[in-house]
Design a protein around this nucleic acid. Structure first.
Lengths: 237, 237
DNA sequence: GAGTGGTCTAGACCACATG
DNA sequence: ATGTGGTCTAGACCACTCT
């Protein structure tokens, strides 16, 4: 006999029905679900409709399919987290400190994989909280190219993505991130107006083109407890 | 005339064909793709097959559909990162320092949302690198329940997930993470054999049940540059 | 009214698993 | 030999948008 149905498209009710049964524990991780044809009978649906519901569960990674065998409930992974990072911090303002061309130091050479004599554009930025205290310091590096418009004069108020994007196919870009903790050195302490040795969260980003060329390198230092990163793993809802 | 095809299922070639055209810039973000029926002609495929290819692109978030209007190329988001975190660190070993029941301090009370008089099980663990140096220190807290077997005696060699899992519906659990930087205080410095004030990366995890009940709280302190977190955003491949 | 995507069906053929 | 999932088709109806 058909299971109780709810609303909306049929494949959606199949999806959510199975989903809730999985969460209720009716099917445990590793167990096999009923076959497609059994589900067809149970839901009075065609095979493609059933498959559509199963596909949803599959792309949610709640189940997986072993071809020619059946569908199985996944064992949850709690090691991959989705983390949101933007430089924007609630209630804070941002101001440019400096924009100019420089010869890269060793760290930047390594990050962008360029020789010491290739000019890079350096963007320095400060984030200031409502009380006027500096809470974050950001440095970004962009390899300089002749084709690029005169950055210093034109782009003082542009933000990094708006500068890098135009010269790239928008989709040729992905970003790699590295998160670490550092102690403020004397130079950082002066810029950020804190004590040398104060622990800072450091978020580095590498902007990468389709051809694996590095299009930009960004460092973001933030005083604690500001700018802590949050994320989720597993199945929400 | 049909576009050049490659191999495998038809919907896969539709998918990868469109995908590569998007990456090549043939369709820019915000632009509309050819309609389903146009794609049917171009690929000599049925509508459902074309839709299957489009669905792949959609779940990859490369395109989105505006119902009754058409499919559009997405504007990439570079703010959501997929970060992998496990306590395991390449080449290092792990050893238990302590497992026992305690009354929670304020931090743990807050994290687990429990009263001061509810016993929690505390697990302490050290990670040691090949040279024998302590590089990470982990603390985990689990609300104690009568139903639970005698933890101290039985579970000395079990790992945290294996302890928490059995008493939960496996899927009733998701994990929330918080990443920050801290300076080692005197107590941490002694445990981790480092100088007070040394910057440490702190990864906190909250294990959450389906009913929003907190099933566990974990802290992971790691010396730098060990255990830095890495992630990706955007479209790989 | 013509075109669009969203849903659904009832078939079909295939390659592979298991007994 | 039977059952499974993987692919594919040729229709169908709907609700909506655009003009």
């Amino acid at each position: 006999m058909p299971r109780t149905s709810k609303k909306g498209p049929l494949y959606t009710t199949i999806y959510s029905q199975l989903r809730s049964e999985i969460f209720k524990g009716a099917f445990l991780p590793g167990e096999m679900l009923p076959s497609e044809s059994q589900l067809c009978s149970e839901f009075q649906a065609s095979r493609e409709t059933v498959r559509k519901g199963l596909k949803e569960l599959e792309s949610e990674e709640l189940i997986y399919s072993r071809p020619k065998i059946g569908y199985f409930v996944s064992t949850p992974r709690h090691s991959d987290f989705t983390v949101n990072f933007t430089e924007y911090i609630e209630g804070c303002t941002t101001q440019y400190k400096n924009i100019h061309g420089i010869f890269p130091d060793e760290q930047v050479q390594k990050a962008l994989d360029i020789p010491p004599n290739q000019v890079v554009i350096e963007f320095e930025q400060l984030t200031i909280n409502p009380e006027g205290a500096i809470i974050a310091y950001s440095k970004k590096y962009l390899p300089y190219e002749r084709a690029h418009p005169s950055v210093e004069s034109e782009l003082n108020y542009a933000v990094f993505p708006e500068i890098t994007m135009p010269k790239l196919d928008t989709f040729s870009l992905y970003t790699s991130i590295r998160i670490s903790a550092v102690a403020a050195d004397d130079s950082l302490a002066e810029i950020m107006q804190c004590s040398p040795g104060e622990p800072l969260l450091l978020v580095e980003r590498f902007f990468i083109q389709q051809d694996e060329q590095l299009a930009g390198y960004a460092l973001f230092y933030v005083k604690q407890p500001y700018g802590q990163l949050n994320g989720m793993s597993g199945h929400r809802l």
